[in-house]
Every structure is written in structure tokens, then in C-alpha cells.
Write a protein that binds this DNA or RNA. Structure first.
Length: 804
RNA sequence: GGGCGCAUAGCUCAGCGGGAGAGCGCCCGCUUCACACGCGGGAGGUCCCUGGUUCGAUCCCAGGUGCGCCCACCA
């Protein structure tokens, strides 16, 4: 064994071995208590990023912990087809050949996507493996698998028959590049400088007019009203009058609506229901017509009359010029506002009215809200639980159709008379008129529609499988904040609707990992850190440790320091193992504690195990990892190993066997965080038949009485000695431990006895002060008072020892 | 505009009612037979500000200030 632990090679070897030996596998027929994490399926085109790495580090630590406790664990892997994202990637690929998807046609394009995925997709599971993530990779599922598609179709038909899925014309977000609708959650918003034009709409009767402000003059031809706030004194008398829309010279009314912001612009809003969500809402309230003048490609449509075919910019300029000539253009000023973009191609979103499929949230959300309020599902941290409830309460109906070519095509058929037939598979004839001339709906489903089924569709639903009965409901899901509404809440209501039970009981909303400088990690900013590079440089164990250490707050800066700490921990463990194994030639692993430090370390190991378990159960990973670090460095290496060393070299069999038993327990505690290095050391322990990955903590818990007082005396003595150079009298074991650890001949003396006495007197005065306060003694918790008494006693002891 | 989070040692962060902590960095001393990626010691903090509650506040409450993230239909 080398003095420096090198994870290269070791980690890959164990990852391969564990998987080949089947330790990652979940077998329903094995029975027993289950622990299930349906891991978030990454995009099939995706590459490992820091968010994935953090998620895996958290989930895998919990899975490994439970697996060692003997749970029947299922850690489910898989891929999401990621509709728009994947289509976008393949279209970019096509663009390099100077082609578009339209050149291929739908069928050929789909074939191209599958081919592209065969070549470039599904790479991320290799990277998951490199993290040491113990997913059951045999069970990899894909949302476009034949079985999974069947589940999606079944779910759609189920909701349709309950009349929760319907078709309606509404304003939606339209991406002119992808030519599809997008949900609000698929948009990116950027701040941008734009021109705000102030234009007067003259009254039909009488002098003057009303001035509005618009950033999109091209939409003027689709105006159907001008709206003001009902309480706006300036315009109160104008309501009910008519004005002339510039350029198209159309008469429209002035109306009053609460949603108009009197502070913005002139306080008067031109109402264009066809091209603006707010205007659409106002239009519906006032039953206004909904003309559109911009087409699906983002240019002016036929309805725009002589403007047809122009870009919006050209049309806007022409209209402004028209208004200027007639003295109706007051001014154009620049202003800053946020603009919606397609998050994939960054095209500017066009709000358009379009016929889309919707899923009503009204009934679906009720049982889910109840489950959340009753805490049958708990989000962690608590603040996110409240957010999840709020988001679900306010969830608008879900636009589930997309005009994409990659995804689950809706199981909807139209006959020539326009009747709708909805079946899981292609029907023979129209359900209403019997016509056999059926045409399938071209739209595909929102990617998240299929993701919502992940916890049970991966287990075989709609079939009644042993897996489904065994592993549903699961336990845990872990994800980023922005996914709560897109995915988590939807899994909860889908699970309740289909399976009658929540899909998991806990959701960990993990930190956002920022770049070390506090900015967002992003490829375009060049601030991204590739987890694979970190693994390459520091090892997967150290990376896992670092991520867990960092995971405590909502937003956390990536810290190489934390990763480096993990690497040092692995190295320390490696070296102390060399001492206990190699230097002594031990043959047995058995706890036969005799000396005080042996009983103490075994008790400390038990104690830390409880601490780590509590921290894991509270999902406080940072705390777990800190407890492990302290145990390893301070207690195990600096005190125990130093104290035991002389006896090991003397060839004391009991000391050696006990040392290995203590090491065994330490390895078990560390395995969920540092799986590779611990397993590597484990194989060197004598008489190991089972792998560490499946080795349970010894059942005879806490049977070692810690002689904590004795250790405390030694540590007190060491502290006094280190601070003052004054030796404290100790006998027997205590003296032996003291000398092994402190080595009086080597310690540099920096202080003196007088200073130490002074310090102790101050401490004693403080403690006496507190304990002399009746209110303190009466009101403080008993253990706190007791703690102060013990401290006081210790300070007095130390002062005595110094001859104070 | 709404919601959430964070402000503690030079840096990154724990702690969250009763003696201010860790890692890294810095200083001093150590070839010590597991580890110099180590060991021992040390310097370095109005625990953001102002009030309040309490016998006692870094911790709880209120109000500021400064950052960050998420959400939202600013025309």
C-alpha cells in the first residue's frame, strides 16, 4: 500500500465489480422493507452537470445507507425523451447540412431522431456510474419505450374519459422557430431595451383623442378596444366613447378594466386579444373579437391587409410613419422591460390564439393538495413545502399539446366530419359516425405529461406487476426548485389519480450550485464546472463528499476546498488503515476492548452512527459529513490510533483485533459517502466474505461502555500541557494514552502556568456568575444548568492540577 | 410586483438562547517507525445595522441595509 491514496483505477474497478456482482439490482421477490428512489430521468441528450452530480451524491448516500441496513432498495434510472430539447438538437444537426425537418417530412425526421439518439444520446448513465451511483442500470427506462408509450396513452385516455382533457382556443406562447406552443414554464425571460411609442387614437366624434403607449406597433391592426382603469380620473368620461385605430382606421370602443395599470405609459392600453395575454383576458371579459395579424412564422399574416408578408419591425415602422404624418405620434422613447424567449432557441415568443389541448387542474389537484396539507408528502426544506402547496393551488389548466414532431402523438383521431375518437390504439372507425376515414391528431404531448407517470410507469403500469406492487409507493425524490411545478406536483397528482397513493413521502429540494464566484453556472458564461473534471482530478469519493458538505443552504458556491477536504479524508482513512493492517499483521477482526481508549472509540463509533443516521433522516447531509470527518480525524486517528499504537507494535493480539473491529465500523459509517475507498480497504480486512456495500452495522449496538471521564481527563491534561507546558499528574492507562498522544519531549511550549491559571480563574468566575443567578438556575433547561456545573467542576479540577 | 434564502475569522462555510467553530490560507515548531496531502501549537471575529423580548441574544421578534435565487400578463 502506497502512502498516498490514488483513486484512479480503484473507483472504476469497484463500480464495475459492484454492478457485475449484482449489488445494484433490485429484486421484488426478495421481499423485505423497501426503499425506493425513482431518480429524475435526465434528458436523453444530456450531459452530467453539477446539479445532476449533487442530486446523485445525496440520493446515492441515502440508498447505500439503506441498502446496508438490509432494505430492499430500488434506485431507478432512465431517460426522458425531452421533446423540444431533443428535437432542437437534431434540427441543429440538420441545419449543418443546410436542411430543415420539413425537407425530411415527419416520419423520416422521427427516424433521424432515433438514429441520432443511437449515436449521441444516452451517454449520461456512464457518467452516473462514474459518480459511483448505485442505480439498477438493468432497469433503465426511456419515456419513448414501447411499454412506456402505452402507459402514456392509457393515462391520456383515462383523463379524457373523465372529461378533464379538453380542446380550446386560448392565447398561448408560440415559438416561431419551433412552430409550437410552449408552457409558461418553458420560457426564458431577458431584460431588453425597446422602443415605446406614444400614439393618439382620435375620437370618432368630437375633437381630440386618447393617447396610448405601445411597444409593439405592428399589432395595432388587431386592436379591438382601448382600455383604462375604472378609477382613473383622467379617463372616466372617455369610457363608452369610440376611437379610430390608426392606419386601419377602424372604430373601437374605450372600455374600463381593473387590470389596466394606470401608472404605466399614459394609463390607456390598446387591447389586442390576439397577441397579448393580458389583452386576451380583458377581451374575454368584455366579449371582444379576437383578430390576429401575425402568423405562426412571426411575420405579418394575410389578415394584416397591405402589411401582409412584412416583418413585424417593417410593419411597425410603416404604421408609425403613417401616424407621424398625421400628427398622431407624440413621441418614441426607449424603455427597459423583460421579454419572453423560447428557452431552447431563444426566439422571441409570440403570444397567439391557438386551438390546443388542455388538462383541467380542478379535480386532479384536490387530492394532491390534501396529501400535501396532511403531509403525506413532505417537501424539504419546509419553505419549499409551502411553495409547492401555493403553486398547486394556483396551477392554471395545463396546456398539454405541442406542435412538435418528437414526442408522444396524442391518441386522438378525427373523421372527415370532425368527430373526435380517443382510443389507446388506432380505432377502426369513428366512434360517433362509424366513418373509417380517420386522421390522427398531429400534436404531441408536453414532455412533462409522460414524466408525471415516472414513479409507476417505470414499474410496469398499466400492467399489474410484482415490481409495481412491491416498489410503489416509493420513498423519496430529489430535485431542483424550478422542477417543483413542472414535475414533482404532477407526479403527486398523477400517482394519486392512477395508483390511489402518493408516489413518495419526501421530496428533497436541493441547493443550486453556483460557480465559485457566486454567479450561475452556465456554459455560455463560461462559469460551468464539469463534475467529470472534478472527479478526474480529485476522485468520485472526494467529489461526493464535497457536494454533500456544500449542500446545506439554498444557494451554494462550488467549493474546491470542500472537495479537497473529502480527498484528505479518503487519504487519511487509507493511511490509518495501513497502520492498523500492514504494520501489525493482524489476523482477526473482533472487538475485545480492554483499555479505556478502546471502549471509548467503540462507543464513539456507535454514537456517531446514531448521529449520522439522524442527520441522514433529516436530510442534513452537511451535518452527517461533518460528524464523519471529526470522528475520523479527531477521535479515530489523532486519539485512538495514537493511543493504541504502542500496543499494536508490541504485538498485542487483543489490541490488534479490536483495532480492526473499530476500523470495520468506521468503514461502514463512511461507505455511503466514500464508497470506493472504503470498499478497497475493506477487502484487506482478514476474513471478509461479503462486500462492504451490503454489510450491515453489527447488531450488538452500544454495548461498549465508554470510559469518557478517563479520556476527558487525558484530554484536559493534554490541553493544559499544550497551553502552559505544565504537566498534570496521571496514572496507569491515562498516563500511557497521554504520552502516546502528547509526547512531552516533542511539544513546543508556548504559554506558561500563570497565564493558564488566569484563564481558568476567568472561566470559573464566569460559570460561578451564571450559576449564582437564581433566574438562570430556575429558568434554564436542567441539562444546561447541569452542563454549567460540570464545566465549573472541570475548570476547578484543572486549576487544582496546576496548583492554583 | 410576489415568494424564498443568505449576511459569523483573509476565503468557503458550520453553529442558531447559556464558554465564538471547521476546512483552506497565514505564523511558529517538528524527517514522529500510517500519513509532511502529516503532527503539535498559534495569530486572526463590534457573529451586517437599529430597536424589542429574556436573568442572559450571533441565535427569537420587529424594522432597516446589502447580496442571491425562483416566480409574475410591466402593455
Amino acid at each position: 500500500m502506497e502512502p498516498l491514496y490514488r483513486p484512479e483505477g480503484v473507483e472504476e474497478r469497484w463500480q464495475k465489480t459492484w454492478e457485475e456482482e449484482g449489488h445494484y439490482e433490485a429484486h421484488a421477490e426478495r421481499g423485505g422493507e423497501t426503499f425506493v428512489i425513482a431518480h429524475p430521468p435526465p434528458n436523453v441528450t444530456g450531459e452530467l452537470h453539477m446539479g445532476h452530480a449533487l442530486q446523485l451524491a445525496l440520493a446515492d448516500a441515502l440508498v447505500r445507507w439503506r441498502r446496508m441496513l438490509g432494505f430492499n432498495t430500488l434506485f431507478q434510472p432512465g431517460y426522458d425523451h425531452a421533446g423540444i430539447s431533443t428535437q432542437n438538437a437534431v434540427e441543429k444537426d440538420l441545419a449543418r447540412e443546410g436542411r430543415t425537418r420539413h425537407d425530411l417530412g415527419r416520419e423520416a425526421f422521427e427516424a433521424r431522431v432515433w438514429e441520432w439518439l443511437r449515436l449521441y444520446g444516452r451517454t449520461i448513465m456512464t457518467q452516473f456510474r462514474r459518480m459511483g451511483a448505485s442505480l439498477d442500470y438493468r432497469r433503465e427506462r426511456f419515456t419513448m419505450d414501447e411499454d412506456y408509450v402505452r402507459a402514456v396513452m392509457r393515462f391520456f385516455v383515462h383523463l379524457y374519459r373523465k372529461e378533464w382533457i379538453y380542446r380550446a382556443n386560448r392565447i398561448i406562447n408560440w415559438c416561431p422557430f419551433h412552430e409550437t406552443s410552449l408552457s409558461d414554464l418553458e420560457l426564458a425571460h431577458v431584460e431588453r431595451d425597446d422602443q415605446l411609442a406614444y400614439i393618439t387614437y382620435p375620437f370618432v366624434e368630437g375633437e381630440g383623442g386618447i393617447m396610448i403607449a405601445t411597444a409593439r406597433p405592428a399589432t395595432i391592426p388587431a386592436d379591438v378596444a382601448v382600455a383604462v382603469h375604472p378609477d382613473d380620473e383622467r379617463y372616466r368620461d372617455f369610457v363608452g366613447r369610440e376611437v379610430v385605430v390608426p392606419y386601419v382606421e377602424k372604430r373601437v370602443p374605450i372600455i374600463a378594466d381593473e387590470e389596466v395599470d394606470p401608472e404605466f405609459g399614459t394609463g390607456a392600453l390598446k387591447v389586442t386579444p390576439g397577441h397579448d395575454p393580458l389583452d386576451f383576458a380583458i377581451g374575454r371579459r368584455h366579449e371582444l373579437p379576437e383578430p390576429m395579424v401575425i402568423g405562426p412564422d412571426g411575420t405579418m399574416s394575410e389578415e394584416a391587409g397591405d402589411l401582409a408578408g412584412l416583418t413585424q419591425e417593417e410593419a411597425g415602422e410603416r404604421i408609425l410613419a403613417w401616424a407621424k404624418k398625421r400628427g398622431l405620434l407624440e413621441k418614441v422613447e426607449s424603455f427597459r422591460h423583460s421579454v419572453a424567449l423560447c428557452e431552447r432557441c431563444e426566439s422571441r415568443i409570440e403570444p397567439l390564439i391557438s386551438l390546443q389541448w388542455w388538462c383541467s387542474m380542478e379535480e386532479l389537484k384536490k387530492p394532491a393538495l390534501e396529501a400535501l396539507r396532511e403531509r403525506r408528502v413532505r417537501y424539504h426544506p419546509e419553505s419549499q413545502h409551502r411553495f409547492a402547496i401555493d403553486s398547486l393551488e394556483n396551477a392554471p389548466d395545463w396546456n398539454i399539446s405541442r406542435q412538435l414532431w418528437w414526442g408522444h402523438q396524442l391518441p386522438v383521431w378525427y373523421c372527415s366530419d370532425g368527430h373526435i375518437t380517443v382510443e389507446e390504439t388506432e380505432p377502426e372507425a369513428c366512434a360517433e359516425c362509424g366513418s373509417t376515414e380517420l386522421r390522427r391528431e398531429q400534436d404531441v404531448l408536453d414532455t412533462w405529461f409522460s414524466s408525471a407517470l415516472w414513479p409507476f410507469a417505470t414499474l410496469g403500469w398499466p400492467d399489474d406487476t410484482l415490481d409495481l406492487r412491491t416498489y410503489y409507493p416509493g420513498d423519496l425524490n430529489t430535485t431542483a426548485r424550478e422542477i417543483i411545478r413542472l414535475w414533482e406536483n404532477r407526479m403527486i397528482f398523477s400517482g394519486l389519480e392512477i395508483m390511489g397513493e402518493v408516489p413518495f413521502t419526501d421530496v428533497i429540494i436541493h441547493s443550486t450550485v453556483l460557480a465559485p464566484d457566486g454567479r450561475r453556472m452556465s456554459k455560455s458564461l463560461g462559469t460551468g464546472i464539469d463534475p467529470l473534471d472534478v472527479i478526474e482530478d480529485h476522485g468520485a469519493d472526494a467529489t461526493r463528499y464535497g457536494l454533500l458538505k456544500m449542500s446545506s443552504t439554498q444557494d451554494v458556491r462550488f467549493s474546491y476546498g470542500a472537495v479537497e477536504e473529502g480527498r484528505k479524508l479518503a487519504n487519511k482513512l487509507w493511511n490509518v488503515s495501513r497502520l492498523l493492517l500492514t504494520a501489525t499483521g493482524a489476523k482477526e477482526v473482533e472487538a475485545r476492548p480492554k483499555a479505556v481508549e478502546e471502549r471509548w472509540i467503540l462507543a464513539r463509533l456507535d454514537q456517531t452512527r446514531a448521529e449520522v443516521e439522524a442527520a441522514f433522516e433529516a436530510f442534513n447531509f452537511s451535518q452527517a459529513v461533518q460528524a464523519l470527518y471529526r470522528l475520523t480525524f479527531d477521535d479515530f486517528c489523532d486519539w485512538y490510533a495514537e493511543a493504541i499504537k504502542p500496543r499494536l507494535y508490541e504485538g498485542d493480539d487483543d489490541a490488534q483485533a479490536t483495532a480492526l473491529a473499530a476500523l470495520e465500523r468506521l468503514l461502514k459509517l463512511l461507505h455511503p459517502v466514500l464508497p470506493h475507498v472504503t470498499e478497497e480497504i475493506w477487502t484487506s480486512l482478514p476474513g471478509r466474505s461479503a462486500r462492504l456495500i451490503v454489510s450491515a452495522w453489527p447488531s450488538e449496538d452500544n454495548r461498549f461502555d465508554a470510559d469518557a471521564d478517563a479520556l476527558e481527563r487525558v484530554q484536559d491534561a493534554a490541553a493544559i500541557f499544550a497551553r502552559s507546558g505544565v504537566a498534570v499528574e496521571l496514572d496507569g492507562d491515562e498516563r500511557r494514552i497521554f504520552e502516546a498522544k502528547v509526547r512531552p519531549d516533542r511539544v513546543q511550549v508556548n504559554g506558561n502556568a500563570d497565564a493558564e491559571r488566569e484563564r481558568l480563574r476567568k472561566e470559573i468566575a464566569r460559570a460561578e456568575g451564571i450559576l449564582g443567578n437564581e433566574n438562570f438556575v430556575a429558568n434554564a433547561p436542567p441539562d444546561v444548568v447541569e452542563g454549567e456545573r460540570e464545566k465549573l467542576a472541570r475548570f476547578r479540577r484543572e486549576l487544582d492540577a496546576l496548583g492554583g
